[in-house]
Design a protein around this nucleic acid. Structure first.
Lengths: 301, 301
DNA sequence: ATACTAATGAAACAAATGTACCCTAGTCAA
DNA sequence: TTGACTAGGGTACATTTGTTTCATTAGTAT
């Protein structure tokens, strides 16, 4: 008899259920919160799981799910699950193919087209980017990075943050990754001490920033290995680079998209990690170690 | 003992099941054909229905479904249903062309799998992210940003660079976007002067960073509007936010991916721009102006 | 400490589920 | 006709399911 505020009749749809679940979340007891969190993160499970299955998956007792269902106004788990089932039956969650999916989204209002265009641009950019990239070249670039003394990642404007993104991730596991230009400095100054033992990852898209182009030239003169990332094969930093990667960055907006740049950098990093840890067993161990360190495996907030 | 041609092991996926069902269709007995036809027309029902429910719906006896399952090589209805369940759980979206493309790439060498996994993770993350996002909520968030005095974007770790990415792009066209924490400061200090006229965009994925969670709490107390971006609907910053957006950030790596966060932020920004420039004509003009400013229309370096 | 309450777990129950078994009706061959 | 055979229906059974009930634990105020 602990039903609270929300009445939640049986005609509810899953969105309403999930909404009230997230609203009640802070007020729930620990076990109920664990169950609710699992539902919020795996709403599809509800429709197809028995109470014991989902309880196992969420690492709580079956009872907890009955209590959870009651706490938001249902009679029991069965009523709680039924809206999820109904929507699966109606095919709400299943998209037959992307074309239809994209057509189905973004119809409300004049901004619908914009939404659809942004989403499809993001996906298309990634596909085009990776369709045009040679995997072996990625591996060679990764080996170059791994063998290097230090790796400098250079970007200005939006690509400054992208360079930082990569450097941050890389330096959580390895030494000697830096994003340049450091604040208050210039790219070329930051290259002063770099030599043939080092690697420069340079990123710039149209309009090519002269600081970056020049930094690449200087780096080459100093014998620094250069990995160039740009949005055209004709880009000066790709032409001059030891390893050049072309990313697609088109959007219906005035700004270029960073999505594929980020995707490429993350993939490059994963190759570096793979090269750095050739032993599969220790790689898997290290993987879990890092995830534990990051707390990704921990429960709750 | 009426199992025919197809062995159909238990590792099958729903497409294979449906395919062999339609292949066998002509050779089936009337009742079995009725059952098979129902499955082909309502494949979603299989995953969520008991044998009696689906038998009722198809207007056959429960037994018939056991026989149907056996006729295409399963042990019983339970095995027949499991691939459908699994795919619902995983939230599978079927994109046949991409599947083929992904299979065609990344076959050379032991890192092939890694390459393929990273690419498909990036695309899947974007699809899942935008499949789960309500466009109207995006527009409301955009309006909130546009009406605000200033917009602070908060992230630590990798998300620090993502916050900067957004702030940089946004501030090329509009005033008063800042990424926090500023160097040498803390998120909460940077919120000191913020009030109900301001917006905080907070980003943190598992493991949720306490600085960000607390900053959101403080922001709410001060009346600041909060837009939360995280990787779970149960995330404290989404629960507390005025506008919450869940992004998928899974990778086969130890680090979470920023790809969908960036994609979401870019989409949000495009909405803000659209809201800010309601007149279509002037929006197009401004678009070209900005691109010229950025030099995107210029040729070569 | 004590009593009291809320939260959780364990066990038991009736209802449902998947399946095995048997029966009927119809067909075809001898 | 008979017998063999098959498709399909009916029923019984062990298992699983959702639920209830009760015991145990943890937390809190007295």
């Amino acid at each position: 008899m602990n039903s609270i505020s929300v009445p939640m009749s049986d005609g509810a749809d899953s969105i309403q259920v999930l909404t009230s679940l997230s609203e009640e979340l802070p007020q729930l007891t620990p076990e109920l919160r664990k169950a609710a969190s699992y539902v919020l993160e795996n709403p599809n499970d509800v429709g197809v799981s028995s109470i014991r299955e989902i309880a196992d998956a969420a690492d709580v007792k079956p009872n907890t799910f009955v209590r959870l269902a009651r706490s938001i106004g249902f009679d029991g788990y069965e009523g709680f699950r039924s809206p999820f089932r109904e929507e699966i039956r109606k095919g709400v969650v299943n998209f037959p193919d992307r074309a239809r999916w994209l057509q189905s989204i973004g119809r409300s209002g004049k901004l619908g087209g914009l939404y659809r265009n942004m989403v499809s641009a993001a996906i298309t950019n990634i596909e085009e980017t990776f369709a045009g990239i040679d995997e072996r070249q990625l591996m060679m670039a990764a080996k170059t990075i791994w063998k290097s003394r230090q790796t400098l990642t250079l970007g200005v404007g939006v690509n400054s943050s992208n360079a930082q993104n990569f450097s941050y991730l890389a330096s959580t596991g390895m030494k000697h990754f830096h994003a340049i230009p450091r604040s208050g400095s210039t790219p070329i100054d930051d290259l002063a001490w770099a030599d043939k033992r080092d690697v420069l990852i340079a990123i710039t898209c149209k309009p090519y920033r002269s600081e970056v182009v020049e930094a690449v030239r200087v780096a080459k003169e100093q014998g620094v290995k250069v990995i160039g990332i740009s949005d055209s094969a004709a880009s000066p930093i790709i032409v001059e680079a030891d390893h050049g990667f072309v990313v697609s960055a088109d959007t219906p907006q005035f700004f270029p998209s960073s999505v594929s740049t980020i995707a490429l950098l993350e993939t490059l990093l994963s190759f570096v990690i793979a090269v750095a840890t050739p032993n599969v067993v220790s790689r898997v161990e290290e993987f879990h170690d890092r995830r534990h360190q990051l707390g990704i495996y921990e429960e709750e907030c």
